[in-house]
Simulated assay, not measured.
Amino acid sequence: MVKIVIDAGHGLNTPGKRSPDDEREWSFNNKVAKYAIAKLKTYKDVEILRVDDPTGKTDVPLKTRTSLANKWKADVYASIHHNALANKWGNHSGIETYTMDNPKANPKSIEIAGAIHPRIVMAMGISDRGMKRANFHVLRESAMPAILTEGGFMDSTGDIIKLRDNQYLKAQGEAIAEGLATFFKLQPITSPTLALKEGAHKLYKPSSQSLINSTSAVLKKLEKMADDPLSPIWHEKLVKGTLTDSDAIGLLYVAIDRGLLVDEK
Rank of each mutant, 00 (worst) to 15 (best):
Ile147Val: 15
Gly152His: 01
Ala36His: 06
Ser109Gln: 02
Asp45Ile: 08
Tyr35Asn: 13
Asn91Ser: 15
Lys57Tyr: 07
Pro103Ser: 06
Gly56Leu: 04
Pro103Gly: 11
Val46Phe: 07
Ser142Arg: 01
Ile147Ala: 05
Ile120Met: 12
Ser127Gln: 14
Thr149Tyr: 01
Lys57Met: 12
Ser79Glu: 08
Asp128Pro: 10
Lys170Gly: 01
Ala105Asp: 10
Tyr98Lys: 04
Leu68Gln: 15
Ala84Met: 12
Ser156Leu: 02
Thr66Ser: 11
Leu40Arg: 08
Val76Gly: 07
Leu68Trp: 07
Asp101Ser: 13
Ala115Met: 11
Val46Gln: 11
Leu62Ser: 07
Asp75Thr: 02
Gln167Ala: 12
Lys73Ser: 14
Met100Thr: 02
Phe153Lys: 00
Thr99Tyr: 13
Met122His: 13
Asp75Ala: 06
Leu85Trp: 11
Gln167Val: 03
Arg65Asp: 05
Gly114Val: 01
Thr149Asp: 03
Ser156Asn: 05
Ala143Asn: 11
Ile147Ser: 02
Asn30Ile: 00
Ile126Asp: 09
His92Leu: 06
Asp128Ile: 03
Pro118Ser: 09
Tyr35Asp: 05
Asn166Ser: 14
Ile161Glu: 13
Asp59Lys: 08
Asn70Glu: 09
Arg50Asn: 09
Lys108Met: 09
Ser127Lys: 15
Lys88Gln: 13
Arg129Ile: 03
Tyr35His: 15
Pro54His: 08
Glu141Lys: 14
Lys73Gly: 10
Ala69Asp: 08
Asn83Trp: 10
Asn91Gln: 14
Thr157Cys: 03
Ser67Ala: 15
Leu49Phe: 11
Met122Gln: 12
Leu62Glu: 02
Gln172Glu: 13
Ala105Gly: 14
Ile120Phe: 01
Ile126Arg: 14
Ile116Leu: 09
Met144Ile: 04
Lys170Asp: 03
Lys44Met: 07
Asp59His: 04
Ile176Cys: 00
Ala105Lys: 11
Ala143Trp: 12
Lys73Phe: 07
Ala177Asp: 08
Ala123Lys: 07
Lys108Cys: 00
Gln172Ala: 15
Asn83Thr: 04
Phe136Gly: 05
Ser156Met: 04
Asp59Phe: 00
Thr97Trp: 09
Lys88Gly: 01
Trp72His: 10
Ile147Glu: 05
Lys63Leu: 12
Ser93Phe: 10
Ala134Gly: 09
Ile80Phe: 00
Arg129Cys: 09
Asn83His: 06
Asn106Glu: 11
Ala38Gly: 08
Ala33Leu: 02
Trp89Leu: 13
Ser156Gln: 06
Lys104Thr: 13
Gly173Ala: 06
Gly56Asn: 04
Val60Cys: 12
Asn70Arg: 14
Ile126Gln: 08
His92Ser: 07
Tyr35Ile: 00
Ala113Tyr: 06
Ala146Cys: 11
